[in-house]
């Protein structure tokens, strides 16, 4: 059991969960009727991608990507002998983290703008249900195609 777990599930478990989360988000974006729900789905969708990226940068048994001055010296002396050199295997890959900081910020910006648009829609239509909004547009179309 444990062996099965370690060879078959563990290596890719994170990736599977990210796919599941992403699909939940995508489903919500397409199929949900309420606009706020769609946006929550969109956020889940984005965080799933962040999960994927962060999982890419993980190294088993490594520490956080901060190299204190003391540790730097120790790590260098301990592993390589050459002073000042750092063993890269001991620290998590910082690049995905940086990228995901950006992605998080982009995500919140998008969410903010989308919420603003949603509020504007509520002002115009008095509802946030997609089918009701489309119905209103259709009715307006029949009356006059402008606007």
């Amino acid at each position: 059991m444990k062996e099965f777990f370690e060879t078959s599930i563990e290596p890719h478990f994170n990736y599977w969960v990210y796919v599941i989360l992403m699909m939940i988000g995508l489903w919500a974006v397409i199929a949900k009727n309420n606009l706020i729900k769609k946006l929550i789905g969109m956020s889940i969708f984005q965080t799933a991608i962040i999960l994927f990226y962060v999982s890419v940068g993980v190294k088993k048994g490594s520490g956080i990507p901060i190299i204190p001055k003391a540790k730097e010296a120790a790590a260098g002396a301990g592993e390589h002998g050459a002073a000042g050199a750092v063993n890269p295997d001991l620290f998590a890959n910082p690049l995905p983290h940086v990228l995901m900081l950006t992605a998080i910020v982009v995500g919140v910006s998008t969410l903010g703008v989308a919420l603003a648009v949603a509020q504007q829609l509520f002002k115009d239509f008095g509802t946030l249900e997609e089918d009701e909004i489309l119905e209103q547009i259709k009715t307006a179309d029949k009356a006059s195609p402008d606007g």
Partner: peptide, 11 residues
């Protein structure tokens, strides 16, 4: 207002 709805879909 249709533009707003379109913008939402676009987002």
């Amino acid at each position: 207002r249709r533009g707003t709805m379109a913008a939402f879909n676009y987002i």
